[in-house]
Nucleic acid binder design. Structure first.
Length: 393
DNA sequence: TCTGGGGTCCTAGGACCC
DNA sequence: TCTGGGGTCCTAGGACCC
């Protein structure tokens, strides 16, 4: 078991709600949730005042309201969250370290192995980060500290808000991680939780000490070993610094009322297709597998996929196929949600590519050359990201 | 009055090719 | 009378994450 590294997991507490409060101080100390405004909306993010009433993420809004009469509902401002997220990452890169693996808008890993000295302990660094993010952005953070990613992630979950949890020794593992219910474990969701409990595995400690490997494989599939290793404090400690492009793009919406009216569906699919075309062109991607999916009134999801011979990405091409697929498979169905998406994505010979072709004085690249070029682009891309992340003033 | 949306990864089964 | 087997791609569904 390698314990050479010091990995932080840094998590912004109640991110959407905290940004709203930082942006509008009159919301402080009041019960708020960030959520949609229709009758079918659910809570995206409750603040800590709202959580005291039992309100949780993903709870239907009508239910949240019944728990708290004075609940304030704030609509999403995604651009604002992206802005704060960027500031958060830039602040850390600039003032602490740019050895950061970005996970989502509100969380990241940081490898601080090389920053630690006699005086500058992991705890001192973590406190500095908390103070910095609080002072500069007005946001609270929880930080987990350990020698691998799994344990630091579990650590940041352990004490919220504004917690710091260190897990280094076997006795830390046994006192902090093992007593927790199995459902608290990262990547153990509702379904696995149910099967594990049925088979007598109620805590993470139970999982760490089970010998029933067949059961684990039947629940977790081919990666089952990672789960038992993680429970025993063994896990990945390499951060991933490359920021990949998306592997699929999709847009969906729950309708105000269930419908089988194709003209209404069509209006939605047109909007979604426009959005997808914009996102694809933003990343310079094209794809060849198109998906249309619906949720029926019983909440069951139905998906149809079609893989084309050629890659496409523009609005007109995609729209024709989406509509044709919808008409073929779902036309008379009552649906509560409709969505479309595209996957099997590749880069659309970007300009950067032709620039490299020219450099090689070779307009018709062979397959092998193409692979070299892709490597070069990836390399260039990740370097640029690091540069962007580390400058910003 | 009635349960979101955007992703990633995995699995099982089938088609097709050699 | 007899119905392989490996590889690859595709589809549909589902678990899980934030």
């Amino acid at each position: 078991m390698s314990k050479n590294k010091i990995i932080f997991h840094i998590d912004i507490n109640a991110f959407f709600a905290s940004v709203e409060q930082a942006n509008n101080p009159s919301l402080k100390n009041k019960p708020i949730v960030v959520a949609g405004k229709t009758k079918r909306s659910v809570v995206s993010c409750p603040n800590y005042v709202a959580r005291k009433f039992g309100i949780k993420a993903a709870m239907p809004i009508f239910q949240a309201k019944s728990l708290c009469k004075n609940l304030i509902i704030v609509s999403h401002k995604f651009h604002l969250y992206e802005e704060y997220s960027e500031k958060f990452i830039n602040l850390l890169s600039e003032k602490v370290s740019n050895r950061i693996e970005y996970i989502s808008l509100d969380e990241c890993y940081m490898d601080v192995t090389n920053l630690v000295t006699e005086k500058r302990t992991p705890l001192v660094i973590a406190q500095k980060i908390q103070n910095l993010v609080k002072k500069e952005l007005g946001l609270g953070t929880s930080i987990g500290i350990s020698y691998n990613k799994f344990l630091s992630k579990m650590g940041s979950d352990y004490k919220k808000p504004m917690g710091i949890t260190q897990i280094f020794t076997k006795s830390d593992l046994e006192s902090i991680i093992w007593p927790q219910p199995i459902g608290n474990m990262y990547f153990v969701g509702k379904s696995s939780e149910k099967y594990l409990i049925e088979n007598g595995i109620k805590t993470i400690g139970d999982l760490a000490n089970t010998k029933d490997y067949e059961l684990l494989e039947s629940i977790f599939g081919k990666n089952w070993k990672h789960f038992i290793e993680n429970a025993n404090g063994v896990g990945e400690d390499e951060l991933n610094y490359s920021y990949g492009e998306p592997k699929s793009v999709s847009v969906s919406k729950t309708l105000l009322n269930d419908t089988d009216d194709f003209s209404e569906i069509k209006v939605n699919i047109k909007e979604f297709t426009k959005e997808i075309a914009e996102r694809l062109s933003h990343y310079d991607l094209v794809g060849k597998t198109l998906s249309v999916y619906v949720k029926d009134p019983e909440f069951k999801l139905h998906t149809k996929n079609k893989t084309l011979k050629n890659y496409i990405g523009n609005y007109d091409q995609m729209l024709v196929i989406f509509l044709e697929m919808y008409e073929r498979y779902f036309i008379d169905m009552k649906v509560r949600l409709v969505g479309v998406g595209i996957s099997n994505l590749i880069s659309k010979e970007p300009e950067i590519c032709s620039e490299l072709f020219d450099k090689k004085q070779n307009k018709r690249a062979h397959k092998k050359d193409l692979n070299d070029i892709v490597d070069e682009i990836n390399h260039k891309f990740s370097r640029n990201i690091l540069k962007v992340a580390s400058k910003s003033k």
